[in-house]
Design a protein around this nucleic acid. Structure first.
Lengths: 348, 348
DNA sequence: GTTAGCACTCCACGAGAACGAGTGCTAACA
DNA sequence: TGTTAGCACTCGTTCTCGTGGAGTGCTAAC
């Protein structure tokens, strides 16, 4: 693979090849490019240039006597430098989103769907982790003689319920006391900040009801943990059938399984959220082997991180074929990221 | 298509054909059956019988000079009369389920997963509709100066939250009054029973806060409605790739889309839940065209209705190839149905 | 540096050919 | 009358082979 600077003409040709391949999914030949309006060159000249580009590793031939397709390196160059964002498609999103803005999880589910139908790729959205979010309040209510309902509300109006089984039959007064106890100590704290010392103090003050306090706190912890693991909304997994290069049996099966199980997707999410060196407003593009998931090595993954509050991050992502309409996807992701952040900040 | 009683030998042969086809998915020929231990007959004899069976419509040939495969009518006979239930596979389910029994939706999600992995088919479970369930209580809590949290608990510990936006800044006292008002009038009622008259009375008693009452009740209604539409848990959609006859591009794409969207699945659910003439303990088998969903006309669907309380029904279903292991599926569904009902009735 | 021309490569596609699994029918047998 | 062996026939599957065409690389001329 030779090293050599890309002169402008090579740039234009490479761009044309990629654009064309994005549309058709077929290897593109020299004649096709020579007919490309802007450059008045014969196919022979193009062939020479293409040979150079292949030498440099930007394009490759599936087999002798076929046209060229972009290599991962070629896509990478394209994404990094050639893309000019599309902004038209984006505004429609805003209105469609505002409908469902009353609950965060509803919102995200809706957003994932929108994303998938708008782009014709598969989409995923991870819910933000709530560890650093502040508790708004905790409330215990009697549901049955031996059951308590714990409602936990954290900032951003994220609500979690849990039923506790208790041995004792608590009277209303005790319940009220416990509620006050819990709220005076815990509300306003980030979930991360609740430590063992604090729990001890609480238990002590609760006296004989210390076990209940313990259970409530366990619940808080567990509720949070649950989220981290698996709150990922996906949509449009079947869009991959629209791209022949992804939809042979084996590949399709693996991809869709990955989507259904969601476990694998957390890798994409984590990788992204923890990466602090984010170029381009938090948009990341993984082309082919650049992402770590085996079953997605023929795909491209584009992700954006949204940040609702300090440390309260989630990821929006698109998974599709390598010949993805990167411009559109990046534009849409950027927009969606902003939408979600705006809505959370109370905009409505 | 001739009419004729099925003598015992034809019965055995048909059964052998179906059994064999269930295993292999390949058309089965006369030689294969003649080697079947129990009947000492030459392939020629079998051929004669097979010709009869085809005449009667129980089996068919994909093309001349291929073996025979069961027709829908053949499967139907098999399901109706030949099946002897398997009970071994079933007990494992119980233990696995008990883990997650604290919330109904968690339970069902888990159950769907279990069902899919145990059977190697796709599974779906619809949540029961709560219309006829009694309200345990409603609770309004202040979340912010202009937001109320409504927690609605219905029998079976189904909990729903909703955030209401309110114009006025309510003080604690008013809130308490509203809570008492709501609960004295509504708790103990089935959701179906809340009527306009009652709402009027409530609004009147609430005075200037009538609008809030209205909103709360709307919320109750909406929450219930939401459920009816789309609370269906699915799992194992990708199992269909295990059956070549279902996994060609077009079919697979349509099937998985149907699963992802869930909208179509409600048809299956509704059909089943409203059908009161349920033979065989509420198990229903739809073979091929017997179900109304276009994209599933090459599948069989087996559903079971569980009933937690009077009128509070949901559906468990399996979707797979027509050559489904009906015995196992029916056994597993029956078991799961019982499990779910038991767990709900407080068993733990 | 660009282009026309040409020989070459290799995939895609279709037509046959060979194969084999399975059938229906007939005739013989118990 | 029911069962079986045998045989000709059908038809899908799998190869092979030949052809056409798209696209290339190279060379020589402009």
């Amino acid at each position: 693979m030779r090293q050599m600077p890309l002169d402008e003409r090579k740039m234009v040709i490479l761009q044309s090849i990629i654009r064309n391949y994005l549309e058709t999914g077929e290897p593109v030949g020299s004649r096709t490019i020579s007919k490309y309006a802007d450059l008045e060159l014969s196919s022979a000249t193009i062939r020479n240039e293409m040979a150079d580009l292949e030498d440099m590793g930007y394009i490759l031939q599936p087999h002798t006597s076929a046209g060229r397709i972009p290599s991962d390196k070629g896509y990478r160059l394209y994404v990094d430098s050639m893309m000019t964002e599309k902004n038209r498609e984006v505004d429609e999103l805003r209105e469609m989103l505002l409908d469902k803005a009353d609950k965060m999880d509803q919102l995200l589910k809706q957003a994932a769907k929108l994303l998938a139908t708008n782009t014709n790729y598969a989409s995923m959205i991870s819910a933000p982790n709530y560890r650093r979010n502040k508790l708004k309040f905790i409330q215990l209510t009697k549901v049955d003689h031996d059951q308590l309902l714990a409602v936990i509300v954290v900032e951003g109006n994220v609500i979690k319920n849990h039923i506790l089984n208790v041995a004792d039959n608590l009277d209303q007064e005790t319940l009220l006391k416990l509620n006050i106890l819990l709220n005076t100590h815990l509300s306003g704290l980030a979930i991360d900040e609740i430590n063992l010392g604090m729990i001890q103090v609480l238990k002590q003050q609760a006296g004989s009801f210390g076990t209940i306090i313990g259970e409530v706190i366990d619940t808080v912890a567990e509720v949070i943990k649950d989220d981290e693991d698996l709150e990922i909304y996906t949509s449009g997994a079947t869009n991959i059938f629209k791209y022949p290069e992804l939809s042979d049996h084996h590949r399709a099966s693996e991809l869709i399984t990955a989507f259904e199980e969601k476990r694998l997707l957390t890798e994409l999410v984590n990788e992204n959220e923890n990466d602090s060196t984010q170029p381009q407003m938090g948009i990341q593009v993984y082309i082919g082997n650049e992402n770590r998931i085996e079953s997605m090595k023929d795909c491209s993954v584009v992700t954006a991180t949204y940040e609702l509050d300090e440390g309260m991050r989630g990821t929006i992502g698109i998974i599709g074929p390598k010949r993805m309409d990167y411009e559109k996807v990046v534009a849409v992701l950027k927009s969606l990221k902003t939408q979600i952040e705006d809505i959370y900040r109370g905009g409505k």
